[in-house]
Amino acid sequence: MATSKHDTPGDAHGHQEPAHYDGHAHGHISVATYYRVFGALMLLMFLTVGAWWLEGVVAIPRLLGVIVALTIASTKTLLIVLFFMHIKVSSRMSQLYAAASLVGLLMLFIVIMGDYFARGWPPQLGPLP
């Protein structure tokens, strides 16, 4: 169900680069797509709340819960960025800058969390094996 909902916009996300950078209309995202994306977003939101509710009832490893929540949030972000924010049909430069924020975040997170994992945090826990 979930997949079929956002498959349609997902399919459209093939590799069709805009041939030129000069900011002319690069193609359009139809109103129907907006509604489909919105449907997918709502569905994902109920999925994430549902997963949370399920965690309260069934014992699920905590890490798994976090991964599920973050995966859903990232998928929602991807949908919003690609379609609502037109990155799919934007110039290559805008696409690059959208990706740059991800690179910046990765540098921040990987290095600092890496230090915390290696250092042992909080101190009484000791470093990761």
Binding site: G104, M107, V111, G114, D115, A118, R119, G120, P127
Partner: peptide, 21 residues
Amino acid sequence: GFLVWGHHMFVSSQSVYAGLV
């Protein structure tokens, strides 16, 4: 330049591995 800031923190309880990297 984004990946070297820890050299300001060699003596501030940063992990040894982070220090090496």
